[in-house]
Each structure stands twice: as structure tokens, then as C-alpha cells.
Amino acid sequence: MQTIYVRLLDEDIEVFVPVNARKLFDKVFEIISYDKNLKGEALEFNIGDKVLVEYKELGEFKEKKKELIAIKIYKNNALYKN
């Protein structure tokens, strides 16, 4: 299991939240679970979704870190924007 980040929708600024995911193959993960405090929040991708990821810098100033961000749905060897 690995942590990746998913965009939180309905926010005035760009917000990403950590979710637990399982690596399927290079740059493709399946979202397994997320924090129970996120229940009821609108996430860009949901549990069970298979997503393509890429690295993006998150954080502010000196605390910026490169993290894996879910960017597209992956289905049957094709990519779809959610």
C-alpha cells in the first residue's frame, strides 16, 4: 500500500488529500481507502478507481515535497479524464 494524493473538489483553492492506493503497474494505482474524516467530501476520484499518477510539488515554501498525484482514470488500457 502506498499514499497518493487526490484533488478535493468544491474548494476555492487547489487542495489535495492523501489516500491509500495499491500500485498495479508503472504510474497506475487503484485507490483502496481514505481517511474516514473525508466521508461526505467531494473527491476527484473514488475508492476502487484505477488512476494514472504523476509527481507534483505540494506544500508551501521550504516544506514543498514531490508527491504522487492522481490525474486521470485508467480503464481497459485507455485513459479518461474524470
Rank of each mutant, 00 (worst) to 15 (best):
41 E>M: 15
82 N>V: 06
65 K>W: 00
3 T>A: 01
43 L>Y: 12
31 I>G: 05
80 Y>H: 13
44 E>L: 13
20 N>R: 11
59 G>N: 09
44 E>T: 01
14 E>K: 07
76 N>E: 15
57 E>I: 00
33 S>A: 12
74 Y>F: 15
38 L>M: 14
20 N>C: 05
26 D>V: 01
50 K>Y: 07
48 G>Q: 08
52 L>C: 00
5 Y>C: 07
13 I>T: 13
35 D>Q: 10
38 L>H: 02
41 E>S: 14
7 R>C: 05
14 E>V: 12
60 E>R: 10
22 R>T: 13
20 N>E: 14
32 I>P: 02
47 I>M: 09
25 F>C: 10
45 F>N: 04
5 Y>M: 03
49 D>E: 14
73 I>Y: 08
63 E>L: 15
10 D>L: 07
59 G>R: 07
30 E>P: 09
18 P>N: 02
45 F>S: 09
52 L>F: 14
27 K>C: 11
21 A>H: 12
8 L>W: 05
71 I>H: 05
55 Y>D: 08
32 I>A: 07
52 L>H: 03
61 F>L: 11
45 F>G: 04
34 Y>S: 08
67 E>N: 09
3 T>P: 00
70 A>D: 03
43 L>T: 05
39 K>H: 05
80 Y>P: 00
26 D>H: 12
26 D>F: 13
31 I>K: 11
10 D>K: 06
2 Q>M: 11
23 K>W: 03
51 V>D: 10
68 L>R: 13
13 I>C: 03
23 K>C: 11
22 R>I: 13
46 N>M: 10
24 L>M: 14
21 A>G: 05
13 I>M: 00
2 Q>F: 14
77 N>H: 13
32 I>D: 10
32 I>Y: 05
